[in-house]
Amino acid sequence: MVRKITFWENKKVFITGNTGFKGTWLTILLLELGAKIKGYSLDEEKDSLFNKVSKQLKNQIENVKGDIRDYDLLKKEISVFGPEIIIHLAAQPLVIESYKNPLQTWDTNLMGTLNLLEAITNTKFSGTALIITTDKVYWNNNSNQQFKEDDFLGGYDPYSASKAATEIAVASWRLSFLDKNSIKLATARAGNVIGGGDWAKNRIIPDAIKSILKKDSLKIRNPYSSRPWQHVLDPLNGYLNLIEYLEENNIEHENKISSYAFNFGPNTTQNKSVLELIEKIYSFWPRKYQFDKNTIYHHESESLNLCINKSQKLLDWNPKLNFDLSVEMTTNWYKDFYLNSKHAMDICLKDINNFLNL
């Protein structure tokens, strides 16, 4: 899809979880497209992309500190802002953390989303709401199948299960309470995102960069697990394409749970193992290294493949970056930040504008 720049010009967009990794990239991207943004999120982590660019964003967005589980505050902020578009990213996003705090994970991911749905139903919101879930909503038996939007949902770990339940809850809410003529409600399931500015714990890119900087060996839980790695800008571009499509079209087969669900991932030929990802990073930032392969202590799927035919056909969306380019752009972001002392915002803007011009 050719981006209609004017679509986002002065569009009022409410983003939950805007201080997270994807939320920060989305915020900067939408500002470049001319949108007016209100963010609703917990305090950012000290070592986070949002923290690095917060001074530059301070006068460009309205930012509210709030918990997605606080219904009254959430409803108030939506009502006061009067958004045309809502993008829901707030979540407990880590599999390992979900084992440590399963109830908090379920409460945030499922009940937090239901709070948002209740809020948009009981305000004057009339537009499109996009709920971001994950590629891990599918019941994965390691058969190496390409998961389509109408495949069976499920989850082994609390994170995946809570997101699968969220998909069911969103579909139920849309059918039960929303007037399709005034509110469009969809979900997006994206593959494993990478990109500069990720410093989250227990994620492979931050761990790899730290190992380079500290000259330590890298500990990998599952080196041969294959994943649909994609640069963060590719699925974000897909989310925007989906919103534009929903604003201008009706989906006729709305009685199916998968009708308003869309996969965003790389072409399956671009799926690579964790080990291949690490070796590719080190090819762009050479160093001597060795791998310290830990014992696997939590269940993780051996492979995960997304079928993106629906997004390609309906939205005319395709990933712009292949695996090599995604890893190169990600690695160069950190090299610019650590070796060339460039500001995080400047690097993000360079990547975004290069991406938009592809």
Rank of each mutant, 00 (worst) to 15 (best):
K201V: 02
R203A: 10
R203Q: 14
R203T: 12
R203E: 15
R203W: 12
R203H: 13
I204W: 01
I205E: 05
I205M: 12
D207M: 09
D207P: 00
A208M: 12
A208L: 12
I209H: 03
I209L: 02
K210Q: 07
S211L: 02
I212A: 08
L213N: 06
L213M: 05
K214R: 08
K214G: 00
K214W: 00
K214S: 08
K215V: 10
D216W: 02
D216I: 07
S217T: 15
L218P: 04
L218S: 05
L218M: 07
K219R: 15
K219D: 11
K219C: 14
I220E: 00
R221T: 14
R221F: 12
N222D: 14
N222P: 10
Y224I: 15
S225N: 15
S225F: 11
S225Q: 08
S226P: 00
R227Y: 10
R227T: 14
P228G: 02
P228K: 00
Q230T: 15
H231C: 09
H231Q: 10
L233D: 08
D234W: 06
D234L: 09
P235G: 05
P235Y: 01
P235H: 01
L236R: 00
L236C: 12
N237P: 14
G238P: 07
G238E: 02
G238W: 04
Y239A: 03
Y239R: 05
Y239Q: 05
L240C: 06
L240H: 02
L240S: 06
N241K: 11
N241R: 08
L242W: 03
I243G: 00
I243A: 05
I243D: 01
E244L: 03
E244Q: 11
E244N: 07
Y245G: 05
Y245T: 06
Y245Q: 05
Y245R: 03
L246D: 01
L246W: 01
E248W: 03
E248Q: 14
E248D: 13
E248T: 12
N250A: 03
I251H: 07
I251M: 09
I251C: 08
E252F: 11
E252R: 11
H253Q: 13
H253K: 14
H253R: 13
E254N: 12
E254I: 09
K256C: 10
K256M: 09
K256R: 08
I257T: 12
I257H: 01
S258G: 07
S258K: 00
S259Q: 10
S259I: 03
Y260H: 13
Y260K: 11
A261E: 11
A261Y: 04
N263M: 08
N263K: 07
N263T: 08
F264G: 02
F264V: 07
G265E: 01
P266R: 09
P266Y: 10
N267K: 13
N267L: 11
T269M: 13
T269K: 15
Q270C: 10
Q270P: 09
Q270D: 14
N271I: 15
N271Y: 07
K272F: 10
K272D: 02
K272T: 13
S273I: 12
E276A: 14
L277W: 00
L277F: 14
L277S: 06
L277N: 04
I278A: 04
I278E: 01
I278G: 05
E279D: 12
K280T: 15
K280Y: 06
I281W: 03
Y282V: 03
Y282G: 06
S283K: 10
S283D: 07
F284P: 00
F284T: 00
W285P: 04
W285I: 04
W285V: 11
P286N: 04
P286R: 05
R287G: 11
R287A: 08
